[in-house]
């Protein structure tokens, strides 16, 4: 298929950006979206132009690095996937596709489609861990049984890949799904109880400091989350925060 691409080009963080049109031809429907971008970049390199910068690494939907906003949706029109798992069969010949970076005040553009998501790391530094040193003599892994349901629900929360689609999707640029997922994982496990109150307070404080917005329960984040992280996690985080403050 032949396509027109409208892509955000921005030289660096301090430059002004703009949408630029490109044409790509003979794109196979079996290609992944990023392979289509590879074709475009090879074309640009061979014609002496600068290729489009975009973040990508594992290309199998788990590292969380890819981050495009395609036709107005984080990770594009399919559900339950990241941009690297999006395939061109979702588009048809002659389509015009708009490609932008994930946009949020807390995610400044680095170049073209690459954004700086280090705010997420800083939230994790504030409390996204259980304080246990590596010693080789922690208690046996089976000494505390954990109900299967709790373990499974913790696992569901823990599958967050930290891509930032929730933030890019939210009209308030809220990071509550991301933070809620981490708070929930530990809140559901006995190992996380000891520091639960400090953790949720510190992580939420850092989240606010980074300039992420508040949650107004539109639920858009859950819809666009490539890993299907549930809104329940936001509710659980609010409960934990309430519990910690009384």
């Amino acid at each position: 298929m032949n396509l027109t691409l409208k892509i955000w080009r921005q030289k660096d963080a301090s430059s002004k950006g703009q949408m630029v049109d490109y044409k790509v031809t003979e794109i196979s429907e079996h290609m992944s979206f990023l392979e289509m971008m590879d074709v475009l970049n090879e074309q640009l390199v061979n014609s002496g132009e600068e290729p489009v910068a975009f973040d990508h690494d594992c290309r199998e939907g788990i590292c969380g690095m890819c981050s495009m906003y395609i036709n107005g949706e984080a990770h594009g029109p399919d559900r339950g996937i990241t941009t690297c798992q999006l395939h061109m069969r979702m588009f048809k010949d002659g389509d015009t596709i708009t490609i932008e970076p994930f946009r949020a005040a807390a995610f400044p553009v680095v170049k073209d489609l690459v954004v700086d998501r280090s705010a997420f790391d800083r939230i994790q530094h504030a409390g996204g861990y259980i304080s246990v040193n590596t010693s080789g003599n922690t208690q046996d892994a089976n000494s505390i049984p954990i109900a299967k349901e709790a373990a499974d629900t913790a696992m569901d929360a823990a599958t967050c890949i930290g891509c930032g689609a929730c933030v890019a999707t939210c009209k308030n640029s809220s990071a509550m799904l991301f933070v809620g997922a981490k708070v929930s994982q530990y809140a559901l496990l006995p190992q996380g109880q000891v520091e639960a109150a400090d953790r949720v307070q510190n992580m939420v404080a850092q989240m606010d400091l980074e300039g992420f917005g508040n949650c107004t329960n539109t639920g858009a984040c859950e819809v666009e989350c490539p890993k299907g992280i549930s809104l329940d996690n936001i509710a659980r985080m609010n409960r934990e925060l309430m519990k910690a403050s009384i």
């Binding site: 861990y129 259980i130 246990v132 590596t134 010693s135 080789g136 922690t138 208690q139 046996d140 892994a141 089976n142 049984p145 954990i146 109900a147 299967k148 373990a151 499974d152 913790a154 696992m155 823990a158 994982q185 530990y186 496990l189 190992q191 996380g192």
Partner: peptide
Amino acid sequence: DQCVAQGVPFARDYGGLL
């Protein structure tokens, strides 16, 4: 042991064991 202490949610059976 170390990973469980860190909060890694390994799969468990219905008795709550790994």
